[in-house]
Amino acid sequence: MEYIIIIIAAIFVNNIVLNQFLGVCPFLGVSKKISTAVGMTGAVTFVMVIATMVTYLIQTYILNPFGLQFLQTIFFILVIASLVQLVEIILKKVSPSLYQALGVFLPLITTNCAILGVAILTYQKEFNLMQGVVFAIANAIGFGLALVLFAGLREHLDLMNVPKGLKGTPIALIVAGILAMAFMGFSGLV
């Protein structure tokens, strides 16, 4: 039962992008087309889940027992950077078209605050390994949800008559704000 609460909270109530402000750069950068948004979500999910698992293990079996908590930031980000390299290599072999489409945004997954954020949040919320994995998957779904919804909105925006001063990023941000407002409706659900 508590897993359902973790999942609903992570996807809707505390949506990683629209509520926690993590993962905003790719959110703004990769959401111009729904297909790239979906591809990005897949890559992020993979990295997020494995990163959460590995960082959890490092924290529990290396950092905590030796009182090295202050090395958390360094170790966590090293894990994430290595994982992203791995994803790049795999993607190049398995799906070169997606690799091309994601372009410069793929290495940028390393600096996706959502991934480091979720790893640290798992530690702060004192989840165990299973809860951490569920939490990571749920957050990745929430990220994907926000991304795909936003991409859909932006595809429409391109066809609209936006005032000149607001064209591009400004109107995108304002629309994101309204989307965030909609998600506020979920608060109090859990």
């Binding site: 629209l18 402000f21 001063g165 607001l166 400004p170 941000l173 304002i174 965030a180 407002m181 506020m184």
Partner: peptide, 20 residues
Amino acid sequence: LFVLAPGAFIVLGYLIALIN
């Protein structure tokens, strides 16, 4: 609203428009 999540997006949007 402005102290909450949506407000952040909206104010930033307008500020960027201004700076542009």
